[in-house]
Design a protein around this nucleic acid. Structure first.
Lengths: 245, 245
DNA sequence: TGCCCGAATATCGTATACAATTTCCTTGAC
DNA sequence: GTCAAGGAAATTGTATACGATATTCGGGCA
């Protein structure tokens, strides 16, 4: 009965529902709760949903043309991710990721990355070492062409390579999670002028330390590398909204 | 049927609009999903549910005499915690939290705790300092009475005090999350004999370093403190199930 | 006028029913 | 005898309904 084909009221369809020739592929976009979660997550990250706003289950359900059930699941997942706060009989509220908390997140990110670098210097195997060198080369190539978008992408790959090389799968997963969460905010600092060249130099020192098996140096370099990003970001945000709130 | 008023259902951070500390108790009634989640969590931790086993929603629902809805919520929370893997239209499968991954988790936990200690040594304010001292005193009291259960509880409080004292709310939340996840496994090592006295001595050194503002020492002591726990735990597990099938 | 108590309202948690997809078994053809 | 195709059974995902509980507003009483 609920052959709900009126998707006009909702931006629910991210990819064509015609999954005709891909029966083996994992159904990425078919589960509505995941779809709703992703959309809400993006809206929160971009600030479209301002802090403190209440996410009304019924309203969200009506907006996407679904029932409360998938909305509930989506909101619960957002709560687990720390993006919204659940107050028992009051509803779900968008948590304000203020500048202070962002700095805190960068601080933790720096520690995790530094740990990954320290472990990588001790445990890296030849295959991962090659991948790391390749990722560094790709960064350098992008920097020489002065393409900040490409550098942004290769930078992601570089840090992924470090995660992979650390030999601690759990740490890698946690680092990826945090990286993903900070990603939305990091986009803003894409076009800081001399940052790219400086970042590349830091990458070189990091790789050199890992290659040399010098865990202490790799740790220190990586921590500084991330903390600098956090500070730059804080400056940027502070300059963008000087009298926020 | 001991009613555990464990409020660790979700991230109930009091952050939204005018969310002051709510003196009203959480849904201390019976939230069935939380209860089911706790039981399943413990079963998975103890190995009662072996790795790869499928968690049948109807079976669990029938077992607890509830409908599938709270079971689904519980399973989703377990998935968020990383204890089970969700395959879209196939079901939930118990992830094998092998000894290797547990060691990895303790490694990360050690790093986060050490970071918290380092920051606490620099940033702790008088009020938190008093709380830390009180937590240490409570630990000592429990140790003198040789009550391991009480010590276990006070130990939790002690580490909570360190999280609070670090001045980084995000780090504190992440540390609590990991601590919570490891808690299920840590239950097993309650009664390791001389561990309590040794742990207390380590606590004393940690507090002394924080009081002295010596971040480096606090960091090193805490890291060692957690890593020792991880090693003890690994020994225990290894001795418990040598050929876990 | 202020406080307490109770009903109305809203929201959450759970139960039940239905739809969609996957898996497995049966059956038929080569 | 083996393999493939189709359908039935099973299981997940979603919809709708209902009960329980907390919040709020209004009225009565001190």
């Amino acid at each position: 009965m609920q052959r709900r084909s009126d998707q006009s009221a909702a931006t629910l369809v991210a990819d064509p529902p015609e999954a005709e020739v891909s029966p083996r592929r994992p159904p990425a976009g078919r589960v509505k709760s995941a779809e709703i979660r992703d959309i809400l997550e993006q809206e929160i990250a971009t600030g479209e949903r301002h802090a403190g706003e209440r996410l009304d289950e019924q309203a969200v359900a009506a907006r996407f043309g679904v029932s409360r059930t998938p909305v509930r699941e989506a909101i619960n997942q957002l709560a687990s991710a720390g993006l919204v706060a659940l107050i028992p009989n009051r509803g779900a509220f968008v948590r304000e990721t203020g500048l202070g908390e962002l700095v805190e997140m960068f601080e933790v990110m720096a520690e995790l990355e530094a740990m990954a670098g320290r472990l990588a210097a001790r445990r890296v195997d030849p295959k991962r070492r090659v991948q790391l060198a390749e990722a560094l080369a790709a960064c350098q190539s992008a920097a020489e062409r002065n393409e900040s978008d490409a550098y942004y992408y290769e930078n992601e790959r570089f840090h992924e390579a470090i995660y992979d090389a650390c030999g601690n799968g759990f740490l890698a997963a946690e680092a990826r999670r945090l990286h993903q969460r900070l990603k939305a905010f990091r986009r803003l600092q894409l076009r800081v002028p001399h940052r790219m060249r400086q970042s590349l130099a830091e990458h070189r020192r990091i790789v050199a330390a890992i290659e040399a098996g010098d865990g202490e140096t790799a740790e220190a370099e990586l921590k500084s590398h991330i903390l600098v990003q956090g500070e730059r970001f804080a400056d940027l945000v502070a300059s963008l909204k000087p009298k926020q709130g």
